[in-house]
Each structure stands twice: as structure tokens, then as C-alpha cells.
């Protein structure tokens, strides 16, 4: 095949998209790995954060960076509350109940957003430049999102690796039962993990709002792909999720380049289903 500069553009755009997807998957994966719960409503937390940024920026004129920081904090609090109010009462129940309870939360957050903001698509109305490079065009918002997502992921890595609490969070994912003998309050670890997961969703929200319109159902457009990425990488496997995010984003981007954006997603999902049969433990996962 001849070299195609537009294909290269699509691949690089896929890479940039992969950064944000990896960030989304990281939050969900962290929560799954540590608490053993799938938050079906994770993308709705992102949606809440997007509304938060939109609202602060467009209505109150709060500077964008500050609005994003407030959103990170706000969604972190929301994540904390999700665990405190919804998950912890049913922690010992069958996993499917927990999944469904967060599904109820999905409905709740979606309709609550409708109640507050209506069903209109809203845009923060910020025009960011487009960068031209050898005939290829990249939106600055995407590059910014990619960079910020990477910074977010590296900070989380450092936290998990260096601090006592971060180490405890990883330890809980390996053997939750014995944590009390080391003086670790697993309940506290779960709450902190949920808040971190929320904070990551808040960061993703601040980045996505630069590129996409906000509407109550916006979570549904990237929620499913986030789950698939997590499962593809091996649920709870942070590195696997990272790799899977870039694989899936290439499917979407290249598929979208040759066909349609929807076909890109269809191919990505079909790839996911097939991989579930071939490697149910995930591309980097361990068996069992």
C-alpha cells in the first residue's frame, strides 16, 4: 500500500484518543482491582464532571483550569459517596447485585442531569487552535488531553508505588482478607480508592469537555468502550488496560478513517467479543 498521510493522521489521532481512554480505563480498573466491583456508571461520573466544568466555566466564568480542578475534587467526592452510599451496604452480596446497583446509579445520574440541564447538547464554546504538521491536522484539545492524561496516570503510578497508602491499595487487590493484620482498614482503603477513581473521572471530564458536547447521555457514548478496554486488558490489570486502550482507539480511529465512526466502534466491539473467547483473562491477564 502506498504511504497515506491521512492514514498516519488517523493513527496519531487514535493514539491521542487512546490516552484519554487509558485514563478512563485506569479509574475503572483501579476500582475493580481493589474493591472487586464494576461501576457500570463510571462514565456517568465523567458526565457529571463535564457538566461541572461547563457550568463553572460558561456560567460563572471560572477560569478553565480552576474549573477542571474543582471538577476533579467534586467528582472525587462523588466517587467517595458512590462507595459509601451504594456499594458498601451490598459489599458482601453477589457481584451482579453491585453491578446492577451502579446501573441504577447510571439511570439516576443521567436523569438528574436531564432534570438540571435538560437534554440539549452543550458546548463550553472554547475554540482551541488546530495544529498543522506536514499536511496533517491535530486539534490542540486532543494533544492537551493526551498530555494531561499521561500526567494523571504517571502521578497515580507514583502515588501507588511510593506512598504507604498507595502500596496498601495495591496490596488489597492481592489479598484483602489479611489486611487488618497489617493495621490496614480496608473500608478506608475502599473509600480512598473510590475517591481516586472519581478524581480520575473528574480529570477525564475536564479533558473531554474540550472536545465534545455535554449532554445527559454522553456517558453512554464512551462508557461501554471503557468497560471493554478494562476487560480486554484483564479486569483490574492496570497495565493491561493501558495497552488495551491504545489497541481499541486504533480500531476506532482507523475503522472510522476507512468506513464510518460507528463501524470503527462496531469493529472494536466485535474484536472485544472475539478476544473474550480467545483470551478471557485479558491480553496481559493471568488465568484464574
Amino acid at each position: 500500500m502506498v504511504f497515506d498521510i491521512y492514514l498516519l493522521e488517523a493513527i496519531i489521532n487514535g493514539l491521542l484518543l487512546g490516552g484519554v481512554l487509558a485514563l478512563l480505563a485506569l479509574g475503572l480498573n483501579l476500582i475493580f482491582g481493589v474493591i472487586d466491583v464494576v461501576w457500570i456508571s463510571y462514565a456517568e461520573l465523567v458526565m457529571a464532571g463535564m457538566y461541572g466544568v461547563y457550568w463553572l466555566y460558561a456560567f460563572f466564568g471560572v477560569p478553565l483550569v480552576l474549573a477542571a480542578l474543582i471538577a476533579i475534587f467534586g467528582v472525587a467526592v462523588l466517587g467517595f459517596l458512590v462507595h459509601y452510599l451504594v456499594i458498601s451496604p451490598i459489599l458482601g452480596k453477589p457481584p451482579i447485585n453491585q453491578l446492577l446497583a451502579t446501573g441504577g446509579l447510571l439511570f439516576f445520574l443521567q436523569s438528574f442531569a436531564t432534570l438540571l440541564f435538560g437534554v440539549e447538547f452543550r458546548n463550553i464554546g472554547l475554540r482551541l487552535p488546530v495544529i498543522e504538521l506536514w499536511d496533517m491536522y491535530f486539534s490542540f484539545a486532543r494533544i492537551l488531553a493526551f498530555a494531561a492524561a499521561l500526567i494523571g496516570m504517571v502521578s497515580l503510578y507514583v502515588f501507588l508505588k511510593r506512598t504507604f497508602m498507595g502500596t496498601a491499595i495495591r496490596a488489597v487487590a492481592q489479598d484483602r482478607e489479611i489486611m487488618a493484620t497489617m493495621g490496614v482498614n480496608t473500608r478506608q482503603v475502599y473509600l480512598i480508592t473510590s475517591a481516586i477513581g472519581g478524581g480520575l473521572a473528574g480529570l477525564a471530564a475536564g479533558l473531554l469537555v474540550l472536545q465534545y458536547d455535554v449532554h445527559p447521555a454522553v456517558g453512554l457514548s464512551f462508557g461501554p468502550i471503557t468497560f471493554m478496554i478494562c476487560v480486554l486488558g484483564g479486569l483490574g490489570n492496570l497495565l493491561g488496560g493501558f495497552v488495551a486502550a491504545f489497541i481499541m482507539s486504533q480500531f476506532i480511529s482507523i475503522g472510522g478513517f476507512y468506513l464510518d465512526l460507528e463501524w470503527g466502534y462496531v469493529i472494536a466491539f466485535v474484536f472485544f467479543i472475539v478476544m473474550m473467547f480467545l483470551r478471557p483473562q485479558g491480553i496481559l491477564g493471568r488465568r484464574g
Binding site: 446497583a101 446501573g103 441504577g104 447510571l106 439511570f107 439516576f108 445520574l109 436523569s111 438528574f112
Partner: peptide
């Protein structure tokens, strides 16, 4: 919204 709360 009420429906979602009820589900939970």
C-alpha cells in the same frame, strides 16, 4: 431520577 433512586 426517582426511578433510578428506586432501582438502587
Amino acid at each position: 431520577t426517582i426511578y433510578g433512586v428506586m432501582l438502587i
